[in-house]
Amino acid sequence: MKKHFLLALLISLACCGVYAQQTFPFANEVKQFQHQDSLNFPKPGGTLFIGSSSIRRWTDMEQRFPGAPLINRGLGGTEIGQWVSYYVPYVVTPYKPAKIFIYVGDNDLAKGKTAQYVADQFSLLWQMIREKLPDAAIYFMAIKKSPARWQAYDKVDMANQIIKAITTTKTKTYFVDTATPILKAGTTLPDSALFVQDMVHFNSKGYDKWEALLKPLLK
Rank of each mutant, 00 (worst) to 15 (best):
Q161W: 01
L75R: 03
D108M: 03
K205D: 11
A165T: 11
H35N: 08
L194Y: 09
L7E: 14
A119I: 12
L109Q: 06
A165W: 00
N40L: 11
D135Q: 15
K132P: 00
I55N: 04
N72T: 06
K99A: 01
F195T: 01
D106A: 04
T168Y: 07
I11C: 07
I80W: 06
G112Q: 08
H201C: 02
K99I: 00
Q151H: 14
R73H: 10
V196G: 09
I129P: 02
T180K: 10
S12F: 04
Y90H: 15
T114Y: 09
G51C: 10
D198G: 02
D177S: 08
D177P: 01
L183V: 01
A14E: 14
T78A: 12
I55M: 11
A152L: 03
I166L: 15
T168S: 14
D198S: 02
I129A: 03
V118H: 07
L133G: 03
N28V: 04
L75P: 01
L48Y: 08
G77H: 05
I162V: 15
Y207E: 09
L133T: 09
A179P: 00
G46F: 04
Y207L: 10
V84A: 01
G17R: 13
Y174A: 02
S192V: 11
P181N: 08
I162R: 08
H4F: 11
K219I: 05
G74C: 11
I166G: 04
A68C: 14
S85E: 14
L183T: 04
A148G: 13
M199Q: 15
Y95H: 09
D191K: 05
L194M: 08
L70I: 14
A179G: 00
V104Q: 03
L133E: 12
P25W: 02
E62N: 13
L218R: 01
Q161A: 13
L109P: 01
P42S: 12
K132M: 08
G46Y: 11
I55H: 07
S12E: 10
S204A: 15
L124N: 10
F26Q: 11
F26L: 05
M199W: 03
L10K: 13
L48C: 10
K209Y: 06
D106N: 13
L214Q: 05
K3W: 04
L183Q: 12
S53Q: 07
A27E: 09
A68W: 03
Y19S: 11
A8N: 14
T187L: 09
I11Q: 12
V88I: 15
I55L: 07
N107V: 06
K31L: 09
A27T: 07
L39R: 13
F202A: 00
K99L: 01
F33E: 02
Y117D: 11
E79Q: 12
T173L: 01
T178C: 11
A98P: 00
A159H: 02
P44Y: 13
L217K: 03
A148L: 12
L48P: 06
N160G: 00
N107A: 04
A27L: 09
S52N: 15
K164N: 15
D177Y: 07
I71G: 01
T23V: 14
S123T: 13
G105D: 11
V91D: 02
V118G: 10
N107W: 05
T187N: 05
P181H: 07
T93M: 05
T93Q: 06
